[in-house]
Design a protein around this nucleic acid. Sequence first.
DNA 1: TTGAACAATTGGAACGTTCCTATTATAGAC
DNA 2: GTCTATAATAGGAACGTTCCAATTGTTCAA
Lengths: 345, 345
Amino acid sequence: MTLRDKATILDIAREAGVSKSTVSLVLQGSGLIRPDTAAKVRKAIADTGYVYNRGAANLRKAQSNVIGMVIHDLTNPFYAELAVGMERAFQSAGVVPFIANTAENPIRQDQVLKSMLEQGAAGLIIAPTRNTQPEALRRIEQAGVPVITIMRRLPESRLPVVAPDNVRGGALAAEHLIGKGHRRLAFLGGHADLSVYQERLQGFRDTCLRLGIPEGDITIIEGETNRMGGMACLNAAVERPDHPTAALCFNDAVAFGVMIALRKRGLEPARDFAVVGFDDVVEAQHYIPALTSISVDTASLGERAAHTVLKMMQTRTTRAEDQIGSVTLIVRDSCGPNRAMGDVK
Amino acid sequence: MTLRDKATILDIAREAGVSKSTVSLVLQGSGLIRPDTAAKVRKAIADTGYVYNRGAANLRKAQSNVIGMVIHDLTNPFYAELAVGMERAFQSAGVVPFIANTAENPIRQDQVLKSMLEQGAAGLIIAPTRNTQPEALRRIEQAGVPVITIMRRLPESRLPVVAPDNVRGGALAAEHLIGKGHRRLAFLGGHADLSVYQERLQGFRDTCLRLGIPEGDITIIEGETNRMGGMACLNAAVERPDHPTAALCFNDAVAFGVMIALRKRGLEPARDFAVVGFDDVVEAQHYIPALTSISVDTASLGERAAHTVLKMMQTRTTRAEDQIGSVTLIVRDSCGPNRAMGDVK
DNA sequence: TTGAACAATTGGAACGTTCCTATTATAGAC
DNA sequence: GTCTATAATAGGAACGTTCCAATTGTTCAA
């Protein structure tokens, strides 16, 4: 038994004195095999250090158990949480999913997707990068691989989406801030080409208008979806005349940035400026002040996504309903009442 | 051309009026093929929506381009940064690595590793969970797959390691704190069974002793390696008589927890208690106060790890030198001078 | 005109599984 | 004892690719 070249099912068969078919049957846990025969085989497997060649099996079976999760930014804690949530759900269904990061780069995303397909992925969950071209996913759809998007909806494509109720989240935030007496409000961070952005802003804006805030008192500033972006947005916001006293931030990362920038200017979050985040990452509750945020229930979002592709895989379909997860406002310490009531206007 | 069952190399061959060998040659970019023939083939590929079956290829070639990165906690920003750093390095070498999370669970790690092997991984980078049993990696080694560990060194195993110079990091922190006049010091968080812990503590402790701090004035408290753990450690620390006035924390997450716990007690980080972190995650510079930390140069650590396995793969060896990355102390705002000089003792 | 050298292309076997269709062993019924 | 039904096991073809050896086409020197 030379150590270097790996053992195959035939080596096991010889070792155990049975046929390769028997070994194969044992491997897939068939009940047809007599227990003592199975035991012999299993012993041979253990002795040999045999490792199952899933590639060969897939070749024959024409269906793999590889599932890919393609994420646009794993260094964003929200997406990291989301990814491990999905992973957990998959794992308890007996499949080991693979994660790949695309670093918000469509080219890289193409490569990653191509690689996943070539690897024979049986299902795909994609949190797409900005500027994802519809035809990037065409190949996958036409290969008949079940694929869904998560969080971000693709402009042209009719792929199933799993996402939180962004519109409602925006609305909840607006109600909260207005309830605290704020009248000049801002929506900070994010890019207008993102579906998530459009939805969150829409809920926020519509609710502001409905509750009597004039259009002109709603400040909207786009920016990067991270801390840096938040800092830039806040700086831009407070330099405007009649600047806002409260903001809903595109996501928690932006919100942290906003709070940092406030402190850098000698302003205290909550007391001098109310800030609401979105996503409710674990960090939010530990920050000082603890961040009021829209919780999207990350874990159940991930679970839903996982179960959806799992079901698509087993029913061999490529269509599924969109799933919109409910959101809740988690009130913490980052929003004080409006102190600048009579200050201007 | 039925749309559902996928095209193979033979379909392409027929479509383009050449042999399968020719198609194969084109696919691997051989220069042997006449340009116009290659063009015909490529057109057929584009028309058909053909997707390369890497499983079948690997079966024949007995060497894949799959590389796995198995990480014990992707929700820890440091490891997320590390993972995407490695990914970047691999990607620019033309391979798409797959990431899997083990959630600090040895059982899950076993499953993941098994799956990676079955998938035919050509190389593996592992940031192992606590309590990884040596035999968990035995199978992999004996399969002849190049594998290295990153950050954590495995107790029994002689696998190559890529890690920062933890001992030196601990020493730098001790020097810094003692230089600020602190005399009662603590090392907070982490588990004693982790090699990283042992090394960081050793550097810290040895330097304290060398600089004249008596053994009894060094407080060591183990704890979880996250924010929660940091909070618990700080609380335990300050409740001791003659409690420390400064601490090196096992990592940045612990440090953040320590600072949060300080504030909860009405103490101000830096002014009332000096804290140094370890790893220097991006968050460190944005925190208030900005965290003084030992930078391990995450990006280059990831790059080294990637290049090491890449080289092991191409030289078909399973051995490599350990690599110890240099560390630097990044001084920010979280360490004030010792104000409690004459206070006790 | 022939042959040699080289360029371009082809056919077949092999890789490690699964699955279908035998085949053999075992038991029970007559 | 033979037959039938069933339980276990075995053999071979097939999956989609690569690679070797073989074949054909082309050019050029003699």
